[in-house]
């Protein structure tokens, strides 16, 4: 079977999982249904021959699920009432989506065929990457040599996130001394 068939199967499974996650009443079951979406993204990266992205996506999905389950399993403090459906809003949304789809049919025709990108930069990386950097894994040679500024930015984002989390904990525990000395 071609890759597109498998991708359509995986993506329809992901859409089904997200609809189930919206409709379920129990919060834990809903979190596990969200996990289908992340694992589906990981599997579709594997089908598109991007194992680096698949590994990172898979691990971060596990990480996010553990944090979500730990945060919500103790007490169910999110009680949402069933909201009334605004029929005018739903109609406007559907009409807008259909209009956008029909107006962008010409763009779909002008796109290159699936699996045939027209990017000259990536052609250069494929041809010269191993010789320039000496790295056999071209993804690593891009993120740590050609685009190392990008990685520096990601590290800065992570550093700032940790500082923010620790600052919030310090503020919260200022009144209680027992938590302060745990850090």
């Amino acid at each position: 079977m071609p890759v597109e068939t498998w991708l359509i199967f995986v993506i329809s499974f992901m859409i089904l999982g997200s609809i189930v996650a919206l409709e379920l009443k129990d919060l834990l079951s809903s979190i596990i249904a969200i996990g289908i979406v992340g694992l589906g993204v990981s599997v579709s990266f594997l089908f598109l021959q991007a194992p680096d992205l698949a590994i990172v996506q898979f691990l971060f999905e596990i990480f996010a699920l553990i944090i979500l389950v730990r945060a919500f399993i103790k007490k169910d403090y999110h009680q949402e009432k069933p909201s009334r459906v605004n029929k005018i809003l739903v109609g406007v949304t559907i009409i807008t989506l259909i209009a956008v789809f029909f107006l962008s049919v010409n763009i779909f025709k002008s796109l290159p065929a699936f699996g045939n990108p027209l990017m000259e930069t990536s052609e250069y990386y494929l041809a010269h990457g191993a010789k320039d950097t000496g790295s056999a894994n071209l993804v690593t040679s891009i993120i740590l040599d050609y685009r190392a500024y990008d990685t520096l930015g990601e590290i800065t984002v992570l550093f700032t996130a940790i500082l923010g989390a620790l600052t919030i904990v310090r503020i919260k525990s200022r009144s209680k001394d027992s938590v302060e000395e745990q850090l």
Partner: peptide, 18 residues
Amino acid sequence: GLFVVVWALSIFHIDKGG
């Protein structure tokens, strides 16, 4: 970094539950 974030969040959760 990720472990310290999870550690901080777990302390935060205990503090909130008390």
